[in-house]
Amino acid sequence: MEKKLKLGIPKGSLEKATIELFEKSGWRINVHHRSYFPEIDDEEIECAICRAQEMSRYVEQGILDCGITGKDWILENDSKVHYVTELVYSKVSKRPARWVLAVPADSNIQKLEDLEGKKIATELVNFTKRYFSERGINVQVEFSWGATEAKVVQGLADAIVEVTETGTTIKAHGLKIIHELMQSTPHLIANEKSWADPWKRKKIEQLAVMLKGALRAHRLVGLKMNVAKENLEKIVSILPSLNAPTISPLYESDWFAIETVVAEDVVRELVPKLLEGGAQGIIEYALNKVI
C-alpha cells in the first residue's frame, strides 16, 4: 500500500503566505478554484485546506497527520498534538500575533480584576474563560463572529479579547489595551500516532527542516568577491557572517575568493566599504534556504 502523509494548509490570512513558504522550501502547491484539496508536487503528500481555527482538532483526531496553525487555536481547542516546530511568518511582518484585552479609552477599567461580573466579547472563547477562571475572576464570555471592536463601542460588551500585531486598529476604534493574554505564532503540529510512525515522522521532519531553512533565509543574501592577499585581513575584519566567511585561494595567484552570508539590508552600506578595502568582482545572490 502506498504511504501518504495528510498535510493541512491553513485557509484564510495565512493561506497565501503558507503556500509561498512551501514553494521556497521546495514544494509547489496548486490550489484549484473552490477546491479544498490542492495538488502538491510530492507523491507522498496529500493536502487539504481547512480553517486555522479547526486545524488542531483535525490533527488531534487523525483526519490529518500534520498541519500548520497558530498556537492560539491549539490552546483554544485544548488539542493534544505534538508540537513539531515554530514557524514565524506573516504576510505583513514576522512579529507574533498578540491576544490582548481592550476597553474603551475613557473606561475606568484598568486591570483584570476590574472586570469582575463584566461581559467580554471574543472569538477566543474557551481560552479566555480558562484564563480568567484560573485567576479567580468571574466574567461572562460571549463569542464574537467578527467586528469585535464594535461590540464595546455599541455597548454590547464591557471589554474585548482581540488579536493584533501593532494595536493600531484597536486604537483607531477608540479602545485601549490594558493587558496581553498571550502571543501566538504559527506552528507545524502532528498527530501523536502519526509522529510515532517512523515513516510519517521522517516525512514530517523533512518538512520541518526545509520550512525552517526557508524562513532562516528570509532577508539574507550571499556575497562573493575576490581579494588580493595584502587586503585579505582588512576585508575579513569588516565582513559579517553567520559563522565565518569561506576563503579559498585562486588558482596560481596571490588572490583569494571570499564567500559569506549577510543580512540584505546591510549590503548597501557594506559594498562601498569592501570596494575601498580592495575587494573586486563582488556578486550578490539570493538565498532560498539556510540550514
Results as ranks from 00 to 15, higher is better:
6 K>H: 10
10 P>L: 03
18 T>S: 14
26 G>I: 04
27 W>P: 03
31 V>T: 15
32 H>N: 15
34 R>C: 12
45 I>V: 10
52 A>V: 09
58 Y>F: 15
60 E>C: 01
64 L>D: 01
65 D>A: 02
68 I>R: 05
69 T>I: 14
70 G>M: 07
71 K>C: 08
72 D>I: 12
75 L>Q: 13
79 S>M: 10
84 V>L: 11
116 E>K: 01
118 K>I: 08
120 I>E: 00
123 E>C: 12
126 N>H: 09
127 F>A: 07
128 T>N: 01
131 Y>P: 08
135 R>Q: 03
136 G>S: 00
138 N>I: 06
142 E>T: 09
143 F>H: 11
144 S>V: 01
146 G>H: 10
148 T>N: 05
150 A>T: 11
159 A>H: 02
159 A>F: 00
169 T>W: 10
171 K>H: 12
172 A>G: 13
175 L>C: 07
176 K>H: 12
178 I>W: 14
178 I>T: 05
182 M>T: 13
186 P>L: 12
188 L>K: 08
194 S>Q: 04
194 S>I: 00
195 W>G: 08
210 M>Q: 15
234 K>R: 13
241 S>Y: 02
242 L>G: 04
248 S>H: 11
260 T>I: 04
264 E>K: 07
264 E>S: 11
267 V>F: 01
272 P>I: 06
278 G>E: 11
282 I>G: 11
282 I>V: 15
284 E>F: 12
286 A>Y: 15
287 L>R: 05
288 N>T: 07
290 V>L: 05
